[in-house]
Each structure stands twice: as C-alpha cells, then as structure tokens.
Write a protein that binds this DNA or RNA. Sequence first.
DNA 1: GAGCACTGC
Length: 727
Amino acid sequence: MPQQFWKPGTDKPRILEDEEGGVVFFAPSLSSASSSSSRFGYASIGSQRQRLPVYKYRTAILYLVETHATTIIVGETGSGKTTQIPQYLKEAGWADGGRVIACTQPRRLAVQSVASRVAEEMDVKLGEEVGYTIRFEDVTNPAATMIKFLTDGVLLREIMDDPLLTKYRYVDSFGSKNLELIWKKLEMVLFCVFPGMVADLLEHIQRRRPELRLIISSATIEAKSMSDFFQTSKKHRGPEDHEFVPRKVPAVLSVEGRGFNVQIHYVVEPVSDYVQATVSTVLSIHDQEPAGDILVFLTGQDDIDAAIQLLAEEAHASRKISSGLIVLPLYSSLPRAEQDLVFSPTPRGKRKVVISTNIAETSLTLEGVVYVVDSGFSKQQFYNPISDIENLVVAPISKASARQRAGRAGRVRPGKCYRLYTEEYFVNEMSSVGIPEMQRSKLVSCVIQLKALGIDNILGFDWPASPPPEAMIRALEVLYSLGVLDDDAKLTSPVGFQAAEIPLDPMISKMILSSNQLGCSEEIITIAAILSIQSIWVSGKGVQKELDEAKLRFAAAEGDHVTFLNVYKGFLQSGKSSQWCHKNYMNYQAMKKVIEIREQLRRTALRLGIVLRSCEGDILAVRKAVTAGFFANASRLEVSDLIFLFPARLEAFSHNGMYKTVRGSQEVYIHPSSVLFRVNPKWVIYHSLVSTDRQYMRNAMTIDPSWLTEAAPHFFQNLRRPDPIAH
DNA sequence: GAGCACTGC
C-alpha cells in the first residue's frame, strides 16, 4: 500500500526550525567542507589544521579554560574539536613540566584513531608525547606522554586506584598550581551508566582539587542541563576562593560543525508498519532522487531481515526500480566479513542501501550517505528492579537521537532525512533526551564502584539523574548477600575490596574469589571470561540443527558452565584454530576475546593474591565456586501433584519444565539454547534471566540444594521470612 | 524449541 505512506518528493521539503536550537546543520564554505587530505594535497598539516572550524575559537577556548574550572564546548561532529583542542592546550603550555592532558572517548576505536591522528599532526611517535590507554593496551610513556587519550572505563579504573588522580599531579618548581585536564564527551555523560559516574566523580574531584580543569564536549541539547548540574552542585561550597582560582560557573562555548544542510521530511499521516514504510520510502528515493547512498535505521535483526526481504520482493515486482540497488544489513552480531561490506565503495551507477540498527547512529560512520530513513524506534534496555529482569524492548527514540540520525545524511554533501513519523509527533510528543541509562539499568556494578571510590552515601549522591530507589535497594541487597558490603553498607575487607578490583559483575567476582579456596581458579576464570561475552556460538539462524549437534559434542551433564570448559579445552587443543571454530559452529572472534579477557583476569587474580590452580577435572569444586557467586539465582523444578497419583509415569508427566526461583517464586524456564533444555534437573542456578513470552534462564547449571545454605547461610535463612521485594 | 540495541574495564 504505498499510497498510505508519504511519498518523498510529493510534498515540499522543509528545514526544521527547532525551538531548542538542536539541529545545527551548518553549511560551510567549500574550503572547510572537505576532510580529505587529498583535497589539500599541497597544504601543510599546519594550514590544514587552521582550516578546521574550531580554529577560529582557539583563543576563546584557551581563555575560557584559563579562567573557568569547567568549560562546556557545544558543537556538532566535524568541527575538529576532538583532535585540535588537546593540541591547543599543549601549545599553550598546559602540558609543560610533566603535566598531562587527558582526553576521554567513549569507544576503544575512537581512542586509537584520534590518538594516532594527533600524533601524526604533531609529527611525534605514538606512545611518546601522544599516547593512549584502552583495555588490554597501554601505549603511553609516563615519562614523556603529555596528551593521553583513554576510554571512560579506563579513567574510572584510574580514579578508583587514585581517587584524586594524584598520579597526574604536577608540582612545579614554584609550588603553585597543579593542572590537568579531562576532556569528556557529554552525550555519554548523560546517557550511559559508567560515563555518567565519571562526570559526577570528576565534579567531586574538582571540589577537592579546584585547580583541575574540565572541558566537556557536548552535543547541543544537553549543554544547558549539564551546565546547571555543575553550577548547582557547586553552589553550597561556601565563600568564593581567592582570585587566581578559576571561576566555578561553567563557561559554555558553541562551535559550529562541518555537516551540510539536511532537509527533514516528515510523513503526513502516522505509519502503521514502519518496515513497510521503510521499503516504500527507499524505493521512491531510489526512483526519484539523484545518486547517493541510503542509510535506514530500524531496531534489530528481525526488522532488518524483514525489510530486506520485502525490499527484494517489491523491487523484483518492479524491475525498473530495482536495478542498481545494493541492499546490505548492518548490526553488531553480523559476522565481521559481512559487516565490512558496508564500507566498500559504491560502484558507479549503483546505489547502496544500508539497513542498520543503532550501531550506525554513533558507533560507526558510513561515507557516501546522502539519504537517511529514520523509523523513529530503537531497542532499549529496561530494568525492572522488582523482578530483577533486564529487558530489551522496542521504544521510541528521543529528539537528540533523531537529530543524530539525521546528521548522518549531511557528511559529504547536503542530504535529506525522511522521518517515518509526523512533524506534530516530533515537536509535541517526542521526548528531548530520553530516559537516562542510569534509570534503566541494574546498579550492582555501579554501586560497588562508587563504594570502592570511597563514596559511601550513595542515596545522597548528587546524580544528574537519580536512579529508582528500588533498583538501589536491590543492588545493596545483592552486594550484602555476597558479603561484599557489611551491615553499615561499607565494603568488606578483603572480599569487598577484591571484588571491586575485578572488572566484572560482582557475582562473577565473588565466584572467582571463592575459586581460590576451592582450588579451581583456572577453570573459573575461563567460565568468567566466557560469561562476560555475548555468545561463543555463531548466530543460529539457518544452521540451527548443525549448531545443536556441535553443542552436543561438548555438552556436559552438569550444564552450560561445564560445557564451556569443554569448549575452551577443545579450542586450546586445536591450537586456537579458526577452522576448528568454523567446523564447530563457534564464533572465532568471540573465542579470541575470551582469551584476551581471560589473560586480564589472570593478571588481576595474581594481583589479588589468588593462587592460579587447576582442579584437574574436579568438577564438583567448579560447581561450588559458581554457586558461591550465583546462589541468589537458584531455582527449583515445579513437580506436579500428579507424581503422587501416577508414580509409574513419573519421568514423562511429572513436570512441564517450569521452575520457581528460590528468591522470588517467579515462574521461569530453561532457555532452549541451554544444554539442560529438556533435561530439567530438579535444582539449577542460572546466570541471567531473559524475558520474552516466558522468563528464560540463560546458562544453567545443576546443583545440590545443600550447597546454597552452605554458600550463603544468611541469605537463605532470611528467605524464610516474608520477602518485602517479592511482591 | 528461542532470539541477541550499544558501549566499557
């Protein structure tokens, strides 16, 4: 029914004048438009740098940083701020005498590429004056590095080791100011769990070290609320400090980006089926618009596959339209080789259509996109602290997100964005920034880290977005039951401090710590590494039967955890072979990651004084260690009363696979991907619950119920009393 | 017999 959808080109396109000034698609002069160095083939790096939009603000930025504790720089991508500002600061002397300019980026890849770009511009060897630190990789020289790029997570770990970041502290010969600078991407500050914490923590650090300068790089819309946050948190600090201390009120500076105009088109009527609407829109762009690739935002693999199939059908029906379309899916679980296809240049006379999840919104950039089709939805995680279940659901995106998607059309030349929702909806109904991740997530890891940072009054902590109290209580309860927190909600020694050192979920940390006494630490860190990645198997669609058979070759009667040990052993015996993985329907990339994480855990374990020891096949020890971390996730098979009426038929008819959790008496089932599916042992513990039509336990292991009270006597003793959370 | 938005230590 193409008519029921708005057709691009049939209505006069408009450029949105946004009330919040959110869309700042700036049309620059040609000379500043190109980022390709070939365009400036004869220009020196210096003159290239001067052509970047941020260059005109150089003096202003340096002035503001000099005079303000916090500077917020607002600007679209492409202004050059990421690579240039650290250099300006360095040129102005902020890195003199051993001081360090630290610059965080949300992703590992961004850290690496920005660092090498800056090293190149400064004509220095990466790892000397300019370096970077990401998980598994430290390319810095403490004696020489002046500009250091790092991920939020690494900075968080550094703050944990050194709450006032004193290791960056510079005491110059005059004994005056110690300066350094942390550069933080604000969009991550507001939307992510850990980065949100990082911003708060930096604010805390600033209170005690007013000389520390903070520059926050922000997308337009969040700047004001962030500025308010820094301002109000500092209001209660008493009398103003004396004159050479920087001003507390943050400075805000806008820098235009280098994107092109993007015309925004809205549908006239709301669409009922965005997959169908996507397909109609793509076909009509292809039919009516000049060359240029199309980027479509849908929610997940299912949508994407459905759209591709529908597109193939409709394109087939009208042969004229279909010629020249190259349709490609893009999502993170897609095998690497298929992902790379989206980056290959579009052949002349063809048009590439990339149908993507949110991965293309921020994580990776496609060149050549001129048209964006925005469904208005994405998958978002929600956490229910009452049931303790994390759920991935399709939800409407925010205005901030819609702008980010639209901006993807204006990277190479003026583009168009087709929004599959009405303008009225965008203006009046779409929320401006969405629910902060802090309010949609489990808080156990977050709480243990705050505790480790010495912030004990968590309920009174000055969050930019307070998490729900139920989630907070649930997190404190879990940590208490693990023995990580004591009666005063302080980290216990040594268990609490050790668990905080391990960069994984506290239940996994506890499992690792317990393996020390049980003599199976080698096996347990293998299990921990595998549990902390998505899946070691290849995606099952189309090869389900083969995948199941492959799994059977490794399956252990004790369940998935022990099965993982068999898989890992096989992988090592194959010489970590990619062919072996292929043959066994395992994801080679995932296995390589397991090896990496395992190595890191080994090092962490050694640092914590854990003796690395194999139990040499004593699987009982392994199961007890797993239980020591995951006792709270125990569940018991519900056996029907029929068992007493028809004892002879016990095996076949006594149950329907339903379990009840010990913790909250919730109905749960073993996930079909588990090796224990249909086996249904009487007692299991699981790693996590996923919720679809039913509650499924993912990664289950058989236990003896007596281990539960052995592992956590207090926890199970308390359960006999009415549980306030269970209702 | 089901289904996995996306980061990060």
